[in-house]
Nucleic acid binder design. Structure first.
Lengths: 198, 198
DNA sequence: ACGATAAGATACATGAATGTAGCTAAAACA
DNA sequence: TGTTTTAGCTACATTCATGTATCTTATCGT
């Protein structure tokens, strides 16, 4: 007999619903997210969803929050450039995940609800300590390789900004060449690290 | 007798429909754009819209294309820093226009149609010559104030990327302080212009 | 084994948007 | 002036999502 006789409950069901919500958001865009579609994709009844969430956005926020925290950059011993590139690679990978795409679309929505954005930052972003390149830059500043005074909010955000815009513009994976160019031509000069000609 | 007896045609009607489409896209987001809502806002009949466009997106693209080209940066004589800030100001103003918000949301949509993006670039962006800071940077490179070799695609895009991300993150106007910080701490160092301490 | 909990399924009324059709009459052109 | 074009209006069948109500029964805890 098929598992159709099995009935999911609790965490199992939650996981299935969250996965369905993220997939659906990635496929249709958060703006067109619908209880109906999530229910169908999760193979559950719409009524089950309404018992827990009031609308698709509420559900999506829970799904994003429940998503395991993103992998953190782990700066090595003495390779600032390489660690920066690696941290941008982590960001790219996240940006192409269903969760990443959903977040981008949520932030770019002209009709976005400020409360939703607040919830997004509190529940998803602030849980992570800092951004991708920020972790690396602070690490090397602590070790004296970078002048801490140069690490302003603007400088700490250069890598993330450039990668985000690149993803939005082309919709494709930037590739390591581009990430290296961002590090060499934008981040390192701004951080005051002398450019190393190869 | 009221103008309800007047009947718009041709360009007049087009202008009204385009304005309605942009307003509607700014209010509901391009993802939830609907023929119904555009027709109501433009005070015309839905059938009139269907005679010309097949769906709301098609209409919106025409509306964006028909929008008069954005104001261009006009670099002055000898104020690189000031001209860069001014060009970013132009970009911010555009980003907060209905057209700007619609474009951002279109690009960020995970379910975006590559053909739509292509059409967007061909019909809207490529018509403008270059981006905002790019115009200024090239101008001063031509006059010898910047090493042309430093003006890689990455460097030319730093300002736009940082402003775009800032708008997405906060949803508010960056303010001239922030724009100046972007110029001083990110663009100028990357362009190889020595930082001037005040 | 039993009882409480909650998932699953079905039904229903409602509202919104779709795409099409057909008609009337205003505006533009000859 | 008469003719062509096309905006404006109404109507309709269809589809989809909503939110609620009701009932059955699998699963869990004790």
């Amino acid at each position: 007999m098929p598992e159709s006789r099995t009935r999911r409950r609790g965490q199992d069901l939650l996981d299935a619903v969250y996965a369905a919500a993220l997939d659906e958001a990635a496929a249709s865009g958060p703006g067109r997210l619908t209880m109906d579609a999530i229910a169908k994709r999760a193979a559950t009844a719409r009524t089950t969803l309404y018992r827990r969430w009031s609308d698709p956005l509420d559900l999506l926020l829970d799904a994003l929050a429940a998503h395991h925290p993103v992998e953190q950059p782990t700066p090595g011993a003495d390779d600032l450039r390489g660690d920066l590139i690696a941290s941008l690679r982590l960001m790219v990978d996240w940006g192409f995940s269903p969760a990443g795409r959903a977040v981008m679309a949520l932030l770019a929505d002209p009709a976005r609800d400020p409360a939703v954005v607040t919830a997004l930052f509190e529940r998803v972003f602030d849980r992570r300590g800092g951004t991708f390149t920020q972790t690396v830059l602070r690490h090397y500043a602590d070790r004296g390789a970078i002048d801490p005074a140069r690490l302003t909010p603007v400088v700490l955000d250069i890598g993330e900004a450039m990668v985000a815009k690149r993803i939005m513009d082309t919709g494709t994976d930037p590739g390591d060449d581009y990430l290296a160019a961002v590090v060499d031509q934008a981040i390192l000069p701004a951080a005051g690290v002398p450019h190393r000609d190869t």
